[in-house]
């Protein structure tokens, strides 16, 4: 049975992804756009993520050791930006919300020894907690370092009674020794997809969004279905001339969109909007 499957489907088993038009005609490909010029660095997205995804608050000491579990983090970079002055260096602050880039060719997926992380048909980079043995190779190979490991048994200490009552029942609480990361709020996506399927339709644009996008006061984060050409996200990707399956984007100088570390050929699903400035040129 297995051998005949191998021989019969040989050519389809030898396909490299992503390729041009991979999601054409498919139902879903979740993607995101983050407008850095709109981001004020308020950390509302991080807070929302903690609430939605049962992220443990690790405490001061662990945080100082670098064991924080923020699936989305606001990175601060101090100048030298356009507005930086000697007098008010804070003005040069720039922010970058960093979360799992849901790469189409994710470096983390290749190296996981047990296949705990893999690619779903709707374009997510998923993490199976039950399968994870905690080798942390995925984190080692992630260029963005957005994978977070459960260094401690957080359920025992992060939510002392009665705090456990605020946990989201749709999301599991992770035990020690497994890797976790941003899921694009997969519990919301699954629910929306199921609801749409019972009504015999596809998920409409804007029907579902991630916690971070929902909480963002400046609407810097846009989430949606890239496979649907009429969705806001797809239009923004198009407007900024980013192609999902290409590692070198041919685009006009006026557009702001870029993806981080495109030259590593990870093909991220998140586009950042920001004029990339090279001050020395």
């Amino acid at each position: 049975m297995s051998l005949s499957n191998l021989i019969k489907n040989w050519s389809s088993l030898r396909v490299r992804r992503p390729y041009e038009g991979q999601y054409k005609g498919k139902d879903y490909k979740w993607a995101m756009v983050i407008d850095l010029d709109a981001c004020t660095g308020c950390n509302a997205c991080t807070t929302a993520c903690y609430a939605e995804n049962n992220l443990p608050v690790v405490g001061k000491e662990s945080f100082a050791k670098g064991q924080a579990m923020h699936w989305i983090r606001i990175e601060r970079y101090w100048g030298p930006g356009d507005h930086m002055t000697e007098e008010f260096p804070q003005r040069g602050a720039q922010f970058l919300p960093m979360l799992c880039q849901q790469c189409e060719a994710a470096p983390c997926e290749v190296v996981c020894p047990v296949g705990a992380t893999h690619h779903t048909p709707d374009g997510l980079n998923s993490q199976v907690y039950n399968r994870c043995i905690g080798s942390r190779y995925c984190s080692a190979n992630c260029p963005y370092k957005v994978r977070y490991f459960n260094w401690w048994q957080y359920p025992e200490r992060a939510w002392p009674n009665p705090l456990e009552l605020q946990l989201n029942p749709d999301v599991t609480v992770r035990s020690k020794g497994v890797m976790e990361k941003c899921t694009f709020c997969v519990q919301r996506l699954t629910e929306a997809k199921n609801r749409a399927r019972t009504e015999n339709r596809l998920v409409a644009d804007g029907e579902v969004t991630t916690a971070c996008a929902q909480a963002c006061p400046t609407s810097a984060i846009t989430f949606g279905n890239l496979a649907n050409e009429k969705s806001t996200v797809a239009k923004m990707w198009q407007a900024h001339q980013i192609k999902l399956a290409s590692d070198v984007q041919e685009k006009d100088d006026t557009v702001r969109g870029y993806r981080i570390f495109e030259d590593l050929r990870t093909y991220p699903s998140i586009v950042y909007l920001e004029q990339v400035r090279d001050l020395e040129a």
Binding site: G66, Q67, A68, F149, W151, Q153, K176
Partner: peptide, 9 residues
């Protein structure tokens, strides 16, 4: 847990 080893991200 491996936090004992002071490993981190």
């Amino acid at each position: 847990g491996l936090g004992m080893a002071d490993l981190e991200n």
